[in-house]
């Protein structure tokens, strides 16, 4: 086998050393630093883009939050206005209701007073009429005119016992 021809060892070793050393220098001094530089730059670019994207996202979120805050504020203002208006309306309605109630009760009281006085008047007339009727009836029955005070008190007693 040509591989075991020791005479070829030295030139192979010599050129192996030379060529390997050349490649090593290229790789060590040029290729790897260049490649890692490019890859680091790429990674940095990606990172900065991601950072930018997250910044924009935060900004958008802030805008959204502001919008929602404004919306909520407007909503609460509207609700307050509605509440105020409805309160005013309720107060007005209550006031009118009360006034009307007062007026109504005054009218009712007046009517009641009138009814009471009419009733009392009627009742007074009733006892007088009853006395007169009793006197007339007694005169017709027994022929004597009864004294007015006696008749009056008897009518009163009778009416009282009827009550």
């Amino acid at each position: 086998m040509p591989q075991f021809d020791t005479a070829t060892f030295l030139p192979q070793l010599f050129w192996l050393t030379v060529t390997f050393a050349c490649l090593f220098v290229v790789v060590w001094r040029y290729a790897l630093p260049r490649m890692s530089e490019v890859m680091v730059a790429r990674q940095r670019h990606i990172d900065s883009d991601l950072e930018k994207a997250s910044g924009l996202r935060q900004e958008a979120e802030a805008v959204l939050a502001d919008y929602e805050k404004a919306l909520a504020q407007a909503r609460s203002q509207a609700a307050e206005a509605v509440k105020q208006a409805s309160d005013e309306m309720a107060a007005e309605s209550a006031r009118r209701h009360e006034a009307f109630g007062k007026k109504l009760s005054a009218t009712a009281r007046e009517a009641e007073g009138r009814i009471t006085s009419a009733k009392e008047e009627a009742l007074a007339h009733v006892s007088a009429v009853a006395g007169e009727v009793a006197t007339a009836a007694a005169t017709k029955l027994i022929g004597t005119r009864l004294p007015a005070e006696q008749v009056e008190s008897a009518v009163k007693a009778a009416m009282r016992s009827r009550d």
Partner: peptide
């Protein structure tokens, strides 16, 4: 000492050149 540039050395040079 023999430092002859052989066919082996030629292909080492080619390989290093290609890799570079």
């Amino acid at each position: 000492l023999d430092f002859s540039f052989t066919n082996s050395a030629l292909f080492m040079v080619i390989a290093v050149t290609l890799a570079t």
